[in-house]
């Protein structure tokens, strides 16, 4: 049995291909999370500010994206962008869609982190003679980051584990490669699917679980009171 498992991974370039697939998964995740932060943080700050019209527009974007299945967005962008003359690779479409989603979620996390700070915290800083800039620097921002990070990490794992949807627009991510290997090896070895998908399961676990643990660690450490 172990032989059959080993042969699935040692046959041809199977292991190398799986690792390439993992690379694609990691790339899409990293790029999407990074871009989401880059776009979502300013959006969140605008939502937290008194700019009513802008905040409403972002809120509408957020609610729209939230109720939309990621797969629908992937298909919509993948199949229709080229029809209006925008030619993006499937890889770029996936980053675009995940960023649209991630930035929306990120903006809401940032808004919550900034607005949940009690107004008295700022007053207490002012009462010490701190300038407004110092109040932001030493009191508001450090506390906002502490409130923000667990949510951001949680969003990161959610984004990583949603990336297999790119399977459907034919991106050779971990899942797609796994399926291709199963299709070929399954002919000889009826347990190939178990080995391959089990392996993929372990890889996702190995990526997401430490991230999730780290988030819990931070929450415990930064728990305010």
């Amino acid at each position: 049995m172990l032989d059959s498992a080993l042969s699935v991974f040692t046959a041809g370039r199977n292991m190398a291909r799986l690792m390439e697939g993992l690379g694609v998964t990691v790339w899409i995740s990293l790029a999407s999370v990074g871009l989401s932060a880059l776009i979502g943080i300013p959006l969140g700050l605008i939502m937290a500010s008194p700019k009513r019209a802008a905040a409403k527009a972002i809120r509408l974007y957020l609610e729209t994206i939230r109720v939309m299945p990621i797969l629908v967005l992937l298909f919509l962008f993948y199949y229709s962008l080229s029809k209006v003359g925008i030619n993006l690779t499937a890889f770029l479409v996936s980053i675009l869609v995940f960023t649209l989603w991630g930035a929306a979620e990120m903006s809401d996390l940032v808004r919550a982190a900034v607005t949940s700070l009690p107004v008295h915290q700022k007053e207490s800083g002012r009462a010490l003679g701190l300038t407004e800039i110092q109040v932001s620097l030493y009191i508001v921002i450090p506390q906002a980051i502490r409130r923000l990070l667990p949510g951001v990490i949680n969003l990161t794992t959610r984004m990583i584990k949603t990336t297999p949807f790119v399977f459907f627009i034919n991106i050779p991510d971990l899942m797609k490669v796994g399926q291709q290997i199963v299709e070929v090896s399954g002919v000889r070895d009826y347990l190939a699917s178990v080995w391959v998908y089990g392996f993929i399961f372990l890889i996702y676990f190995a990526i997401c679980y430490p991230v999730s643990l780290f988030s819990r660690f931070l929450e415990n450490r930064w728990q305010s009171g």
């Binding site: 009690p118 207490s124 800083g125 009462a127 010490l128 506390q143 930064w222």
Partner: peptide, 17 residues
């Protein structure tokens, strides 16, 4: 002025971080 007139609040308002 605030450096010379100190204030203590009802809810302490220590900085939790």
């Amino acid at each position: 002025v605030r450096q010379k007139i100190g204030m203590v609040f009802q809810n302490y308002e220590l900085f939790p971080h």
